[in-house]
Design a protein around this nucleic acid. Sequence first.
RNA 1: GGCGUGGUAGCCAAGAGGUUAGGCGGCGGUCUGCAAAAUCGCUCAGAUCGGUUCGAUUCCGAUCCACGCCU
Length: 302
Amino acid sequence: MTGNRILVIAGATASGKSALALQASEILNGEIVSVDSMQLYRDLPIGTAQPSIADRNAIAHHLTGIYELSERSEVFRFCQEADAAIAGIFRRGKVPVLCGGTGLYLKALLYGLDDLPGDRELRAELDAEYDSEAGEKLLHARISTLDPQAFARWKMCRRRLIRALEVFLLTGKSIIELQQGKRQTLRYDTVSFVLERDNSQLKERIAARAGKMLENGWIEETRAAVAKGLFSSPTAHQALGYRQVNDFINGRLTREELLQKIATATWQYARRQRTWFRHQHPEARIIGDDIRTICREFTANR
RNA sequence: GGCGUGGUAGCCAAGAGGUUAGGCGGCGGUCUGCAAAAUCGCUCAGAUCGGUUCGAUUCCGAUCCACGCCU
């Protein structure tokens, strides 16, 4: 039975996941759950390559275009919302098709997060404190006495260091100790694929897509999003390419340089994604653009 | 034709007669509440030929090339 089974189609940006997920959803009577930290934002449909209105009318899409720029995205919150979306799809008797390239989100959703406390306010305070040089030193000193192990491990990684301190202040224990929980077990009956393409092909797709996005209104989208505070937003400001488009708008880049910069940044991102999927998703099977295999594997008894 | 300046890795770009320049890019890795983030590692030189020297990418000469100025 495939009654409560989910399908996952992951992979690097511009590899063609969305199209595959769409086909799979049509064939398997599915609904799509986006696993993408940037497609979450309503005001960034073009630059983050959100599915078209037509596609979204044809197949229900969840967790796409639901946040304001001012909202912070977090793995924990994502998992809660994704779990809810998946539950809803099951209730409707349909197949959840998870599609996206945000590896951390996918892994957390599939394998679960350890039950650690979180306090956004506290984290924000610590983060603000970190901004000054004196504050940075102070925080380092604080963490190195409270949790020397975490300090040694993440000395160079601001966010993880802050999170470690946050958890320590909340629990009195080291995050390293609390994270011992094993997460080898999948939380869902999962059939999971990573869509791979060879380098030259992926590079071409990235460049072509960037060009198309610019033609389709990315520049206007950027103008509007910047006016709405994109660059001072907690998460969305990290979306790829908007800085560069803004530089173009302000005459700091030629159109050609813009395209080049976007393509390079996107390629680098794709490579980071590949590294992630190569090592963090033992459950996944590497696959080419092959909808038949996907459907066959999904419907097979196991 | 003459004079001058310069030729350094895929690109940009320094200094020094013997010790890693650096940046970008490329490649590999890490990843538990901002992940399209953050972070670690690796990689690719000295236009050509000859000379000086224990040793030359660095000094000298010639050649080639580029740029500028002059005729």
